[in-house]
Design a protein around this nucleic acid. Structure first.
Lengths: 189, 189
DNA sequence: TAACAAAACTAACGCTTGTTAGTTAGAATT
DNA sequence: AATTCTAACTAACAAGCGTTAGTTTTGTTA
């Protein structure tokens, strides 16, 4: 179906514009103009502006959820799992850096089920990460700081990586992973 | 002058709403309704919606600038300066947690001189922080990681602290400072 | 009590918003 | 050659936007 690919073009264009100015500051006419068509034409391919936002955000949110489930399923130490989570974030950042702006800044403009579903995913994700850290502390692999502070510190860095990755001309992924794992882990072991 | 205090009430109300939904998603009518008056009445006290945004953002941005200048003026080790910067962020977060949402997410909706002035302040701030880290590395106080990665990691955590501080019922400031300094510094020394 | 300033009001402006209805040009399929 | 499908178009809608002008209410001071 050609419609699907055209729909993906719209979503890609919107993702870029949302990254630059935020969801509410971008109009359907802005998106259309960027594609050299009229705003009404967009509705041959998408149901609403809201649908664009939820496709952008939920697709990436599901990648996080699936990635976290894979990490949890592993049979390895807590520290190794933290490393895997860091690498998961970096992989997603590299592939969807612009979508992450919408996920981080515009999720509250989701509606109804989409909003609830996103919030649930995010809470579960944080809870899973928190339990990995707690297990690491119990096992003596991780220093006994307040787990909340460790969680917050690592997650903040990972969540805003998309801003820096864009700004400082896209470093090599493997070097980035090594550096980030060093800086984020060395402080807590 | 009563007008000034009324103006501050408007700014305080707008700050809260901008924190919840973002600058562009909040209308002048929203702000007015939250104050139990009509939108037109706001204009007895402020020039424009834009003025509200720039007062919110630039006031806090100047606190960061002044704070950083004080840190630079100190005669102490690089590590001690990094500690002071961490404490500066925590103090500002505690006092202006909602304004920081606008500063972080809506600065791009500033116009003209205000936008230029903000961007300049932020660039200078980052550059000053970067040079503290570089000096620490040269002096052997800080591990020789890529300074950019250290800067990014610490600054990301500090910049999103306002989100966590709101969510987890406002911890005691001094405990927070001690914990954050531990987690953020121990990893790099 | 009259005068004054502060701060609210009503009404409206021109413009932008997301979205719908109906139509048309071109390409693919029968 | 006729039909169907895709994807664009024009035109318009009702609602909401930031803002202005002019007026009225409210509270303080002379």
């Amino acid at each position: 179906m050609k419609t699907i690919s055209r729909k993906q073009e719209i979503i890609a264009t919107a993702t870029r514009l949302f990254y630059e100015k935020g969801y509410t500051a971008v109009s359907m006419r802005d998106i259309a103009t960027a594609m050299d068509i009229k705003a009404a034409s967009l509705y041959n391919h998408i149901k609403s502006k809201q649908e664009i936002l939820s496709e952008i955000i939920l697709k990436v949110a599901e990648e996080f959820t699936v990635g976290m489930e894979n990490v949890l399923a592993e049979n390895s130490s807590a520290i190794k799992k933290v490393e895997k989570v860091i690498e998961l974030h970096i992989d997603i950042t590299v592939n969807h850096s612009e979508a992450l702006a919408a996920l981080n800044n515009d999720w509250m403009h989701l509606e109804e089920i989409d909003l609830r579903s996103f919030v649930k995913m995010r809470e579960d994700y944080e809870e899973n990460f928190r339990s990995i850290i707690k297990q690491g502390i119990e096992a003596g692999e991780i220093k006994p700081y307040h787990p909340e502070v460790i969680l917050f510190s690592i997650l903040s860095t990972l969540r805003t990586l998309y801003l820096w990755y864009q700004k400082r001309g896209k470093v090599d992924v493997n070097i980035l992973k090594k550096d980030m794992v060093s800086v984020l882990i060395k402080g807590i072991v």
